[in-house]
Write a protein that binds this DNA or RNA. Structure first.
Lengths: 141, 141
DNA sequence: TCCACGAATGAGTATCGTTCTCATAGGCAT
DNA sequence: ATGCCTATGAGAACGATACTCATTCGTGGA
């Protein structure tokens, strides 16, 4: 698998080795991962780390704007690298999800007054609706 | 406890009296409320209801597209009526929030292919960044 | 009017993802 | 080596939400 020696110079200057491994995992994964997922994936590898550390670093990555998270109705948080500008359309009934390959916001900008001095890091955009199956099921009920 | 007499004609045909009261509370409130907030606000009034019922109905309202929720980093869910098209800019560090009075998405539409047959109910849009205070604090640290 | 049955309700409990605690390990400069 | 600081992780604590299930309400039929 991956080299086991800590990167002497991580791509993101501010990240330590474990944070970098978490980010790598997220970037390699084709989909969003939960904290538990990440913990499980790294377990057994040379980069394994405790759950507390996983969550600690996910928070740091988020505060640096490298990782975004969204919450499922179940309460789980799904993490993804912000460089992947994908968003989701979720069924409020069954929870099924469609990935929107392109961000409808594109480069829609907030004006300075709206920003109020904030330094913008990333955004989350989620659409909710009824999937075809649930529409049908509700219609017949 | 007082028996709940169903409103003969609730504004939303599909809602029972308790669901309507929850929706009323959300619409009257100037800000988003948590499930616990709603439970506390209704306690003591003729419309009081158990926490389980609050969450049950909030889920129903969400499934009908009348209510939207977003999650704070703390894990709490904040509910607001979807008719109020307000979104937020939140500091990833201190959690302070700015309300965006106008939705930057306006009427940006998803094309039918993106929708994949889903019936769109509402969306959530959140921006994350660093507030002026945290920028300064991090800069000096 | 009375009865029966399904839906709604809520008090308490269970669940489970996330955060916290705190003792220990690892670096690093002295 | 010695002390100091940060990072780490095991386990417990926490807290919001979902579930259980006995009870109540509402409604329609007899």
């Amino acid at each position: 698998m991956a080299p086991q020696v800590a990167d002497p110079a991580a791509p993101h200057g501010l990240l330590n080795a474990k944070q970098q491994h978490l980010l790598d995992q997220l970037q390699e994964a084709s989909e969003e991962l939960t904290g538990q997922d990440l913990h499980a994936r790294l377990r057994g590898t040379p980069h394994g780390m405790g759950l507390a550390t996983v969550y600690r670093h996910l928070r740091h990555l988020q505060q640096r704007g490298l990782v975004r998270c969204r919450h499922l109705p179940s309460g789980e948080a799904l993490f993804a690298p912000t460089e992947r500008d994908e968003h989701h359309l979720t069924c409020v009934d069954c929870g099924s999800t469609v990935v929107l390959r392109s961000c409808p916001m594109h480069e829609t900008h907030l004006n300075p007054q709206q920003l109020g001095g904030y330094q913008l890091l990333f955004h989350t955009l989620e659409f909710f609706g009824l999937c075809p199956g649930c529409q049908e099921r509700q219609g017949s009920a």
